[in-house]
Design a protein around this nucleic acid. Structure first.
Lengths: 133, 133
DNA sequence: ATACATGCAAATAATTTGCTCTCAG
DNA sequence: CTGAGAGCAAATTATTTGCATGTAT
């Protein structure tokens, strides 16, 4: 049983075949798949899996804070496993998503929230850019 | 004719009654209204205005870069007139949106994009927080 | 005059949900 | 065994679009 699976069980979820597959797909994914994509990748392993199950599972994982949801200015959402703090730069020409980290932003967001009398519960930082010629 | 109206005309849009109303509603709004809300506020001025028109108008204004679109982790979008660079902190308990500015973030985002070989075309920075007790 | 806008209603697209059956614990 | 979970299809929600009619320029 993987770590991720253990976390789910600990949270009270039953470890069904479908959930194992979806968790596995997410673990294998280096990108930020949409529900549709997660569904497609999961179907390659078990073709009987349904969209509804993918939606419900992703929803649960999101509640458990195991996956993060992104809205990259598209009509649908993208997901990824919640690993360390990082940010995204979206190439507006190719749609490619580049991840980056930044200690400075980390500090800055805490500082700003602090000044406003708030504690950061969640955040979102995305840059949309064009490759320099 | 307001400045905003002039900008629209300059871009080739016809200045219809509906558009004037919507522009006016946006100018008056201190918050970040959804299309539904813009529609409600507009209807108080001219009850015959339709959702389709609001959607289309907002879409055009967005293309002209006169309004910015926000996805504050809700199921719908919110809009506001595009004034100077600023960011948002969303109070997770009340949903209230607090605007703030930050020279540092301004510089930082340029620097980061630069390092990745990109030019910033657009960006998004939101903090989601809980009020400190 | 005429191309662009509007209102209405129907169409889309993403996501959610009701219901019945299945299976993990 | 029993309640949580799955699949299917229908429902919902936000947004978009086709079309006949209206209007700013």
């Amino acid at each position: 049983m993987t770590n991720l699976e253990k976390e789910c069980v600990k949270a009270g979820l039953k470890m069904t075949g479908q959930r194992k597959i979806i968790l596995n797909v997410l673990s294998q994914s280096e990108d930020h798949p949409s529900v549709e994509e997660i569904y497609e990748r999961s179907k390659e392993i078990d073709s009987s899996i349904s969209m509804a199950t993918v939606y419900r599972t992703i929803g649960l994982l999101h509640e458990l804070d195991l996956v993060i949801r992104h809205d990259f200015k598209e009509s649908f959402a993208r997901y990824e496993l919640n690993h360390k703090d990082h940010y995204h730069l979206i190439d507006m020409e190719t749609g490619k998503v580049i991840e980056f980290e930044s200690e400075e932003i980390e500090r800055l967001k805490e500082k700003i929230a602090e000044e406003l009398g708030y504690e950061v519960v969640d955040y979102r930082l995305e840059l949309y850019g064009k490759r320099k010629s």
